[in-house]
Design a binder for these strands. Sequence first.
DNA 1: CTAAATCATCGACAACATCGATATAACGGC
DNA 2: GCCGTTATATCGATGTTGTCGATGATTTAG
Lengths: 296, 296
Amino acid sequence: MIDVRRLEALVALRRTGTVSAAAAQLHYGQPTISHHLRRLEVETGSVLLQRVGRGLRLTPDGERLARRGEEILALLARAEAELTASTSLQAGQVRLAAFPSAAATLVPAAVALLVERHPGLGLDLIEAEPPEAAAMLRAGTADIALTFAYPGQAEPDGVTAVTVHEDALYLVAPGSLDPGAGPVDLARFADTRWVTGCERCRSELLALCSKAGFEPRIAYASDDYVAVQSLVASGLGVTVLPGLALRAHRNPDVVRLPVPGAARRIQVTTYGAPPHPASVDAVAAVLTEVAGASES
Amino acid sequence: MIDVRRLEALVALRRTGTVSAAAAQLHYGQPTISHHLRRLEVETGSVLLQRVGRGLRLTPDGERLARRGEEILALLARAEAELTASTSLQAGQVRLAAFPSAAATLVPAAVALLVERHPGLGLDLIEAEPPEAAAMLRAGTADIALTFAYPGQAEPDGVTAVTVHEDALYLVAPGSLDPGAGPVDLARFADTRWVTGCERCRSELLALCSKAGFEPRIAYASDDYVAVQSLVASGLGVTVLPGLALRAHRNPDVVRLPVPGAARRIQVTTYGAPPHPASVDAVAAVLTEVAGASES
DNA sequence: CTAAATCATCGACAACATCGATATAACGGC
DNA sequence: GCCGTTATATCGATGTTGTCGATGATTTAG
């Protein structure tokens, strides 16, 4: 393989016309360039130069090689610049996987902060539930993810999840219901019909009800937090939804009552261990910040 | 500037998936690849790789850089192959400057020999008189030249001329002339009108006549050896033409008589001193051969 | 839990890029 | 024609670094 430093010497010679000038341009000593040119000829077994007077001239072969070399050096410089831009957060694209209610609440705020802080950084948003998101991280389809986990849940393998927010759970009931005073006792709804929120929340709902001493009668199920609230508003049952889902959409005909001690953890999840690319760290930072600011 | 060897390691890693396999593919030891990858990350200040299990994975930045690197390495290989092809005479283009009568006689024969010997070598023919040809060599517009020189003429500066043929001069007279016996005595035409051949030959003609004891009365002049012969055939005068010109074109209505001891040297002329590019040497060889074979 | 596989690290050696000093050659002016 | 200037080539010395073998750390598979 042709040594690029020697090519560089040849290109500089072609541009400047003399070895000394080429050396100056490359910040080298004159013997260094002389040496590289000689080695380039020996190593390729070609005649690239011809002495003329006290200078040098490129042969047709030398000319052609120098032209190719110029192109190659330009590509190298381009690749380096591209990488530097990405490293210094002036460019790049980060693929973020997020679950629906976060995509509608935290992500827009994070994007706003990101464009303000790093205008060159782009963000591709992919909606995905936590297990799917972890799989995408492992597969390299996403670079970072927003996930959630219920208490006691082990985090998926191979990824690093950092909790950035405690997302309280609320009992959601028809607007006609009297909220009453003090904390909610789920047992009060033991005989009501239930709607499950997202699919993963079903097991958490069962655990909460079991702790309250009953088993809920589940009449309807949907992943869609808008649809679920509509069902509740129509008086078809009650449900439990996390705060983020209620912040994303709030049906005016439902009331929400905090369920004491019930919450899910919102996590910023990345693949493998640090260090991560600067762009990923930057996105993680804005996500953490935005999630922290929503503690209230 | 990014070191190409490190890039090569990254590309090989991307292709093979593991450092060990990449090392094997590049005929290196495994620590060498490990080292190059680490240095590449340090030197560019980027995160290009991520440990996963007992293997490595490329980050998006690493992926992009590897793709660029693949392209760059391909270009390098292409440039090298191109150069090798030229060096081994499988390709290339040589620009040959030749004076008209040689272009019509020696050059076609040389081209025939060249295509037989090196089918990949191409030849660009440029018609040029010797001084012009030498200038083209100096200017880099031609790579090799066929020139001629009259006895005692110094060869132009900066070029190397090798005589490959003695080209005898002939007195050319109208066909009606009785050739007579024995060598020609130019003095016999002292009172005839003269036509000069090519422009450069005028001084040689004057010298020959002067040696014969008279000064020719020059009625017409032309560079064109076909036109000159027409003039002579029409009985407008006599002239002196070199053998090559007569071989290129022979007007049936003229007779030619050798002028004893009068000749020009046909030369293969190159720029500067050896070594010359292999393609130039190859063209010089066929020219020399063809010119030598025409000695008769 | 053991064995195989993989990458990282370390120390050592050889190769080589680079430089300063100097030799050699060519141009320009007087 | 001689001499200062301007080129490149060469040489010896030195510091850097590419490369390897051996070894350690970690993970996967059986």
